[in-house]
Amino acid sequence: METSIMAPKNLEQSTPPAVTVVKIRVLPDGRISRTEAAKLFDRTPKTLSEWAQKGWGPRCIHVGGRVFHDYAECLAMARGDKPLIPVGLAA
């Protein structure tokens, strides 16, 4: 005996995924570029630059005129485990 179960019409429509996959290029020493860090926060690199001027966001690592960030720190901030605005600067 075969039984088939039909899904309700409203569930047959494709729904967008609940999680967006973001590909990040991490250097062997754990650094990521500002552009890659911006992808984690769903912001532009300019926004991260403005955050840095205010003392917010992940710390900057300057190497040869380029700006990098620590991947682990960016990931912790993006997940909400570490605050974007330091406690001393928060209003």
Rank of each mutant, 00 (worst) to 15 (best):
M1W: 03
E2S: 10
E2M: 07
T3L: 09
S4D: 11
S4P: 03
I5P: 01
M6A: 11
M6G: 02
A7G: 05
A7Y: 05
P8L: 13
P8N: 07
K9E: 14
K9S: 09
N10F: 09
L11R: 09
L11P: 00
E12L: 11
E12T: 10
E12N: 07
T15E: 08
T15Y: 06
P16W: 01
A18H: 05
A18W: 00
A18M: 08
V19M: 05
V19S: 09
T20M: 11
V21M: 01
V22N: 01
V22L: 09
K23L: 13
K23R: 14
I24N: 00
I24K: 06
R25G: 03
V26N: 00
V26G: 00
D29Y: 04
G30A: 03
R31E: 05
I32F: 03
S33Y: 11
S33F: 05
S33N: 01
S33V: 01
T35I: 10
T35C: 13
E36H: 00
E36N: 02
A37P: 02
A38V: 00
A38F: 02
A38Y: 04
K39M: 07
L40T: 07
L40M: 15
F41C: 08
F41R: 04
F41T: 07
F41M: 09
D42R: 15
D42I: 02
D42V: 13
D42M: 07
R43Q: 11
R43A: 14
R43I: 10
R43C: 11
R43M: 13
R43D: 03
T44V: 07
T44Q: 11
T44D: 08
P45L: 06
K46E: 12
K46M: 12
T47S: 13
T47M: 10
T47W: 11
L48N: 00
L48E: 00
S49N: 13
S49H: 13
S49M: 12
S49P: 03
S49R: 13
E50W: 13
W51D: 01
A52E: 05
A52C: 12
G55L: 10
G55D: 07
G55C: 10
W56N: 05
G57F: 04
P58L: 04
P58S: 04
P58Y: 01
C60K: 14
C60Y: 10
C60F: 09
C60M: 15
I61N: 01
I61Y: 09
V63F: 05
V63Y: 13
V63C: 12
G64L: 06
G65C: 12
G65R: 07
G65Y: 02
R66D: 10
R66L: 12
V67S: 12
F68S: 04
H69S: 02
H69M: 08
D70V: 12
D70I: 12
D70T: 13
A72L: 15
A72R: 14
C74F: 02
C74V: 09
L75P: 05
L75K: 05
A76H: 06
A76E: 10
A76K: 11
A78P: 00
G80C: 08
K82T: 15
K82P: 04
K82S: 12
P83F: 08
P83S: 12
P83E: 07
P83W: 08
L84K: 15
I85S: 07
I85Q: 06
P86E: 09
V87G: 03
V87N: 14
G88T: 15
G88V: 15
G88N: 14
A90Q: 14
A90D: 15
A90L: 15
A91C: 05
